[in-house]
Computed example of a mutant assay.
Amino acid sequence: MSAELGRLLREVGAVLFDFDGPVCSIFAGYPAPQAAAELVDVLRRRGIDVPPDLASEADPLEVLRRTGAAGDYGVTRAVEDALCAAERRAVETAEPTPYGREAIVAARQAGMQVAAVSNNSAGALTAYLAAHRLTGHVSPVVGRAYAEPTRMKPNPEPILRAVRAVSLPANRCVLVGDSLTDVEGARAAGIRSIGYANREPKVRALRAAGADVVITSMGELARSLVALDSHGDSAER
């Protein structure tokens, strides 16, 4: 394992995983642009005049953010409900990230606590974890606050909820995430971060955002955690 990654892992007792990216590609079989377009249709059915840039938005989470920023809670709830339903459908065809499951299992075997912290809905996370026999490995599961998109990462609140649930100091927790919002949220929460970059431009972006370590495969993390366990580091946790 890389010395930098191994050193970080020896200093923490809990690994918090972002969901879409490190664990799976949630919209692999149900494309995110399709889900976003369906949310835009919800707005139109509500009589909302949708601007062109929002009409062409490919990220359903961004549609929710923009809706919330408009300030009509009833409309935000309608979009939230539609997004929760879309995510529940999406996890049925989500594509597991190579070595994502192995990293979760290895973290538990190394004596670490494992949590999920996501801007996706908790219902979608729970359904995926159950389908992939991971429910017993991951607790707590912290999803997006209902119809309050300002509380999504990079807001540190969901990360801090997970930190409180694992009952460890913030500096003994690390978040594994693939987006700038993950790294920014981790820094705001006072915890470490491992950036997962499956494309070269992401490596530079995550490093620039302040990720403590950047990996290009979840296999790197899984192998490092296995090495920790084999060296008996878990006994110190």
Rank of each mutant, 00 (worst) to 15 (best):
F19I: 02
P158V: 09
V176A: 02
E11S: 13
D41M: 06
T181W: 13
R199E: 09
A124I: 11
T97Q: 10
V214K: 03
L64G: 12
V91G: 10
T76L: 11
R108Y: 02
F27L: 02
S56F: 02
E57N: 01
F27E: 01
N198S: 10
F27R: 00
Q34A: 11
V50R: 02
V214D: 02
I104G: 04
V79D: 07
G21M: 08
R223L: 09
E148F: 11
A205M: 06
G29C: 04
I159F: 08
T216A: 04
G210T: 01
M1I: 00
P51H: 01
T76K: 10
A131Y: 08
E38N: 11
L9Y: 07
L83Y: 12
K202F: 09
V138R: 07
A106K: 06
L61N: 05
E62M: 12
G195P: 09
R46F: 03
C84V: 14
E157R: 15
E38I: 05
L83R: 05
T67P: 08
V226G: 00
A86H: 08
A211D: 06
A116H: 06
P201Y: 09
Y73L: 15
I215T: 03
A3G: 01
T216D: 03
T135D: 11
R187M: 07
A78K: 08
L5W: 03
K153Y: 04
S56R: 14
V23M: 14
V163C: 08
A55T: 01
A116R: 04
D182Y: 03
E157D: 15
R133T: 10
E38D: 13
Q109E: 15
E11F: 00
V23T: 10
T97G: 01
E148C: 14
A69M: 13
I104Y: 13
T93L: 05
G123N: 08
A85W: 12
L175S: 05
T67I: 08
R199C: 00
A227G: 02
E87C: 05
D178S: 02
N198K: 08
A127R: 15
L125W: 07
V183N: 03
A205H: 02
R199P: 00
C173D: 06
E4Y: 00
N171S: 13
